[in-house]
Simulated scan of single mutants.
Amino acid sequence: MLKGVSVLSDSELLAILIRSGNDKQSAVELSQHILSKAGNDLNKLARMSVSDLVNNFHGIGQTKAVTLMAALELGRRRKTEGAPRQRKISSSKSAYEHFFPLLCDLNHEETWALLTDRSNKVLTTIQVSRGGISGTVVDIRLILREALSQYASGIILGHNHPSGQCRPSPQDTHLTKKLKEAAQWMDISLLDHIIVCGDSYFSFADEGII
């Protein structure tokens, strides 16, 4: 209370949330154990489910697990809302930073489309598919319908690879080519396709594929 939350370690912050440990560990020690199993990576911790926490850590029941998940979700939403809605996408990195809060903590694949005006300012971001661990099906018509309704001039596609492997699959490349060709008929440009892989990404535009 005197020095503020910024002086606390990650394990101390988690300890405040779980409030108590178990018969062998204090709340801080239990939190350190949880973080250790997540590789001391809060992004990996956020990918754990309630059952992962309950089944693997003595002293973590459903209430504590839900509390941790809720806190991490609030952090994710804060990152999402922190980006100005009218931000300008000037590079693949800025596109990646826009998609990162939406995709970084997922154990399944999702695909989102970022729609821009002629100045590359963000009009809206929409989810276009939600799939399994190894893939997802994207309906190009859904993307184009939304782009037309928003009077968008550009589209940036973004999806994640939960495996951490950033190289595009043949399906990713086929989808990119198909969407680019379809959008051109509507006088809309596919500006990039970003694959989010945690702290790294793959840009079709940077690689000269688009």
Rank of each mutant, 00 (worst) to 15 (best):
D192E: 04
H108S: 07
L191T: 08
V122N: 09
T111D: 04
K180V: 00
L142H: 09
I195K: 12
C104I: 13
I143P: 07
D192L: 03
C166Q: 08
L157G: 09
L144N: 10
G135W: 13
M69L: 15
A95P: 11
S189W: 02
T125P: 04
I126W: 02
H193V: 02
Q165H: 12
G154T: 03
D192Q: 10
E110P: 00
S129E: 07
S163H: 09
R77V: 07
L106C: 12
T176K: 13
L175F: 11
S134A: 10
L74C: 06
F100Y: 15
A95C: 03
L123A: 04
K178P: 01
A182V: 02
D117H: 08
Q184F: 02
R76G: 06
N160Y: 05
T136C: 13
T176S: 14
T80C: 01
A71T: 11
Q127I: 04
A183F: 02
H98G: 03
H108L: 02
I194M: 04
R85F: 02
E109I: 11
C166A: 14
C166V: 08
S149N: 15
E81M: 08
R118W: 01
S92Q: 08
G131V: 05
R87M: 14
R76W: 01
D172I: 01
Y151E: 06
V137H: 12
S163G: 14
T125A: 10
S94G: 00
Y151L: 05
Q150A: 14
S129G: 09
V137R: 13
T124Q: 13
K121I: 01
T67R: 15
D199E: 12
D105S: 13
T124F: 05
P170Y: 03
P162Q: 03
R145C: 01
E110A: 14
E97H: 12
Y96S: 02
H193Y: 13
I188D: 10
H108R: 11
Q184L: 11
R85K: 14
V128I: 15
I156F: 05
G131S: 08
T173Y: 03
K88N: 01
N107I: 05
E81C: 01
L191S: 03
T80W: 09
D105H: 13
G198E: 11
R87Q: 13
L106S: 15
Y151F: 09
R76M: 02
S119A: 10
E73T: 12
W185V: 04
T173K: 15
R77Q: 13
S91R: 06
E146S: 15
I140C: 09
V196E: 08
D117M: 02
N160W: 02
I89P: 09
S153Q: 12
G131Y: 11
L179F: 05
G198F: 01
D105A: 13
Y96P: 05
M69Y: 02
H108G: 00
I156Q: 11
R130V: 07
R77D: 01
Q171W: 02
T67N: 11
S149V: 01
A182E: 15
K177M: 07
A183M: 09
E73F: 04
K177N: 08
E110C: 08
I188S: 07
L74N: 10
T124H: 13
I156V: 15
R141A: 10
Q171A: 14
L179S: 12
D199A: 10
K88L: 00
V66Q: 15
S94N: 04
P168F: 03
G131L: 06
M69V: 11
E97W: 00
R167P: 00
L68H: 05
S189R: 14
A113G: 14
G164F: 08
L106Q: 12
H98R: 14
R145W: 00
